[in-house]
Design a protein around this nucleic acid. Sequence first.
DNA 1: AGGAATACTTAGCTGAAGTAATGACTTAGG
DNA 2: CCTAAGTCATTACTTCAGCTAAGTATTCCT
Lengths: 141, 141
Amino acid sequence: MPEYADDELAAHLRAAIMRLRRRLVQETDSELSIPAMTVLGLLHRRGEQTVGQLAAAERVQPPSMTRTVTCLERDGLVARRQGESDRRQVVVSITEDGRTRLAADRDRRTEWLARRLADLTPDERAVLDEAAPILEGLATA
Amino acid sequence: MPEYADDELAAHLRAAIMRLRRRLVQETDSELSIPAMTVLGLLHRRGEQTVGQLAAAERVQPPSMTRTVTCLERDGLVARRQGESDRRQVVVSITEDGRTRLAADRDRRTEWLARRLADLTPDERAVLDEAAPILEGLATA
DNA sequence: AGGAATACTTAGCTGAAGTAATGACTTAGG
DNA sequence: CCTAAGTCATTACTTCAGCTAAGTATTCCT
């Protein structure tokens, strides 16, 4: 039994995403900006990446990624070095400090959402569990 | 069969929301800003509201809502008038032009998402159909 | 070798949120 | 009843996170 008529799902989903995103930003209390945190996570999962790869992964223009990386480098959480095969590239890697900070922040950062999720029924959580990769796919497609 | 360990769902859901939101913003081609459109929708559904009510509904600080309303008023899509019982309040109502614009824009605005949704399998759409109100609830809780 | 293409950076803009302070009005206490 | 405190909206300014345009360094192609 669908909650929404077919042509209304998009509108409702959109509104929900927008509101929830703002809420997530509001409820987050962390020293790291959201893009910074995301990049740190990427480097943790994928290992070192060029600025271009990071920009593509986050679907952001290169200058935006440069700024984020500059910020992270200033705080000593990532290291920049010139690419070996192609010296135009800049390879970014996470530092030990970066990993420490990531671990510390990841918990705090998702804490609010995790608490909210804990309040849901198992069924509801199961729905979101299935929905997460689909949403991810929509963003990436 | 959960895709994610319990304590990872929050992190993944968060990332998915952030990316999808950015994508929605990018792919949207409309004359109305996102907050403006949302407010117009609220006024359409709920009838006239004070600036404070609108701000609370969107979980935005009053100044942000003032700005959005100012913009909408400039375009003749909403009307401001002084509150009758409490003259500090400002009551905002949607105009006929506003309704027209809302109808025209709603389609265009959700078009990209609607197309993406159409590419999903029926099962995936069903999941999102159930997920939408849950996400909405998380944002509002 | 020289010109086109690529990878990142720099500089500056915009949109959409926020806080702090102000003005107008209302409510409550003495 | 009148003053003090509180509330609603606004104004002014800041911050954040994206963008484009233009510049620099390097590589690729003929």
